[in-house]
Design a protein around this nucleic acid. Sequence first.
DNA 1: CTTGACCCTGAACCAGACGTCAGGGTTTAA
DNA 2: TTAAACCCTGACGTCTGGTTCAGGGTCAAG
Lengths: 143, 143
Amino acid sequence: MTHFMRIGELASKTGISVEALRFYEKQGLLKTPHRSDAGYRLYDEKTLKQVSFILKAKAVGFSLKDIAGLLALEVNREQETCESVKNFAQSKLDEINAKLAELQRMKDALQQITDACCGSEKSAVHCTILTALSEDEGEPEHH
Amino acid sequence: MTHFMRIGELASKTGISVEALRFYEKQGLLKTPHRSDAGYRLYDEKTLKQVSFILKAKAVGFSLKDIAGLLALEVNREQETCESVKNFAQSKLDEINAKLAELQRMKDALQQITDACCGSEKSAVHCTILTALSEDEGEPEHH
DNA sequence: CTTGACCCTGAACCAGACGTCAGGGTTTAA
DNA sequence: TTAAACCCTGACGTCTGGTTCAGGGTCAAG
């Protein structure tokens, strides 16, 4: 028993604006939904998950175009080979891994200098964080 | 012995455009550099590291405004307390950790469905990747 | 002493990712 | 049956992060 909702409900359930949803549709991220007699968009539960996928992908730095690429695979399933789909997914995976590595490096660097900072209420003239940032952007091993 | 370089050299060494460098300066990401008699910008080695910090921060999803915030701490060092600097850094660290976790979830999900895909040269009608994306956006545990 | 590579400023322009507004139907609760 | 709350389309506005352009100096080599 599938429950259909209008765009406002989808918007409030996903925490995204109605305008953004219509925009995603225009960009090909959401396929054109069913319409009520009055012309209102009607969405099913699946769309909820698709939207949350889009949001997650966005949150980790993929562009709408990237996401459209991933989702587009679904559309022309019959034209695609399993191989090409897998290759595409793998290249996205490579991108994710690159971002992960970069983030991890930043984290380590920022963590190190944060740990080394005294955190006192005194003036930050000699603050190790600032020193590290301005001199070494995050690898405070010497001097 | 500090070697001063002009904007073109800084650009080629950092792999960023001259225009972008001037733009960063306008946005307060790079402090106004020394000028030659002719009015040319002159940068020292430290700037090289600052730029690479900016690039790394950008690469992991921080906006120019975020980065300006971090770098701005450097400017009014004497007005800032070590405590506030550390707090700011910690909140950035929290953001990084959140991104890291989200990326890791995406990676795991994508990795799982990619591993499960046969990768054959046949039509992708029954491709597990596409099925997973359209139904469950990446967690293929049931049915 | 001029040509080519480099630098300057300011303004205009651009893509991505939406938000807003005008003008107009629809649904529903009172 | 009417007001509030919702929905539609299409056009235009906005912020970010730059790039391009116009008009013009500077400097080293030939």
